[in-house]
Amino acid sequence: MKPLSDERELLKGLANSDKKAVETIYLENFNTVQALIINNNGSTDDAKDIFQEAIIVLYEKVRSGSFELHCRIKTFLYSVSRRLWLKRLQQQNRYSAPGDSLEQVVTVEEYQEAHEQRNAEFEMMEQAINHLGEPCKSLLEAYYLQKQNMQVIAASFGYTNADNAKNQKYKCLMRLKKIFFAQYKNGNDDE
């Protein structure tokens, strides 16, 4: 087993999306989770889905800054994967109590709820952006996600100058916010 300092380094790397760290975590944990899923009525595709979702949970936790891991990365990923998979099996009515093997499990319910909220928000944003259509979608993605500056955007989208691009971006942004908040407010009223 690795010393905890290594684990801390890995988490730091994960928070910075450092490729080497993510790859190491992937390599060291995927097979265990895959075995869990496959031994419990899942396919290799399910394993990939579930495992990646578990890593995303960890990723978003460590990025939030205030997170401290009280167990090993392996235990955490396994526990989250197990929880996610149980939930999916229940939804599909294929539930059968998973024969827990030798792997250690910690309670992860507290993360579950926050994660589901995040999933819902992610989907809302995705839907809102897809609903925009072009050129708004690409324009906003270029500015807000790829963080390109307005001069570059103006040139690549064929606007005569950065101000024109900015006007266009403004209109697109207003539409996106309107669509997003309409869903967002609805979503939060339900609870």
Binding site: E60, E121, M125, Y144, F180, Y184
Partner: peptide, 8 residues
Amino acid sequence: QLNHFGGR
């Protein structure tokens, strides 16, 4: 929200 979305 947008940053979370892009990051994920």
